[in-house]
Simulated assay, not measured.
Amino acid sequence: MAPGRTSRLLLLSGVVLVVAVVLVGLGVLPQLWGDDRAEVRIVGDDGATKATVDAEVADTPRERYVGLSDHDSLEPGEGMLFVHATEGERTYVMRDMDFDIDIIFVGADGEITTIHHARAPGPSEDGEDLRYTGQAKWVLEVPAGTVEEAEIEVGDEIRIDDG
């Protein structure tokens, strides 16, 4: 193969790779590697684990938008971990939700910043007006009552094991 042709093929391959990575990040293409689950441990000041959550990971714009709205329920010990690139003020809504949840906002340092007990929308609500805000890089949604039962508090930390 001629040297000029080899260079063009390498350049084209690089461009295709970059475009694919961007499309996966935007949620246009599915991620073809890794598991979309993570074990999240919530740890108190004394270092003891208060709760362990088997979390589905929502790390693309599309997954974060849909969230748990396509789930009928969550079993104890299950949840969804929303991953953002940076810490910032995040607002979550209960769009099309069928069940109550606890929403745990976590800063970039892994410390819980805010906790909300979120109710499912009523018969005449779509959930867009049920808004919950906190400072977070990660947001963990768990079944309603988990926070109270495990005595989870602002200031506790999360530890994520994504395999």
Rank of each mutant, 00 (worst) to 15 (best):
D35C: 06
I158V: 13
Y92N: 10
A150C: 07
E148N: 09
D72F: 14
V57E: 02
I160L: 10
E111C: 07
D161W: 02
I160Q: 06
I152K: 03
G67F: 10
Q135M: 15
V106M: 08
V28W: 02
P76I: 06
E149H: 11
D102I: 12
E128L: 15
P3I: 05
Y92E: 09
I103D: 04
V142P: 02
T114K: 11
W138N: 13
R90N: 12
D126P: 05
D162R: 15
V19L: 09
R90A: 10
A150V: 05
R62K: 12
R95C: 10
A2T: 04
G145Q: 08
I104H: 05
G25K: 01
E78P: 03
V18R: 01
V147K: 00
V28C: 00
T52N: 11
D162F: 12
D96I: 02
A136R: 05
V106F: 09
F99S: 09
P76A: 13
E153L: 14
L32S: 00
D96P: 04
G88F: 10
D54Q: 13
D96L: 10
A118H: 09
D35E: 12
T86F: 12
G67A: 07
R131W: 04
P61V: 00
G127H: 10
G107T: 06
F82N: 01
D129E: 15
D156G: 11
S124N: 15
Y92L: 14
I112Q: 03
L26W: 01
L130G: 04
A58H: 02
G14R: 00
L140H: 04
E151S: 15
E111V: 15
D161T: 07
A118N: 05
R41C: 03
V19S: 02
V28R: 00
Y132G: 08
E111I: 13
R5L: 14
P61G: 03
D100V: 08
L140M: 06
G145N: 08
G88D: 15
W138D: 05
K50Q: 12
T52G: 09
I152Q: 03
S73P: 06
T60Q: 06
W138G: 00
L10D: 00
D46V: 07
H117V: 08
G145T: 08
V43I: 13
W33C: 01
L130V: 08
G34Q: 04
A144C: 06
L68I: 13
Q31C: 00
A2H: 09
E128N: 13
S73N: 13
W138K: 04
A2L: 08
I152A: 05
D96S: 12
K137H: 14
Y132T: 05
G77I: 02
G27F: 01
A85C: 00
G47R: 08
D129A: 14
M1T: 05
T91R: 10
L140I: 05
R119P: 11
I104A: 06
F105W: 08
D98M: 15
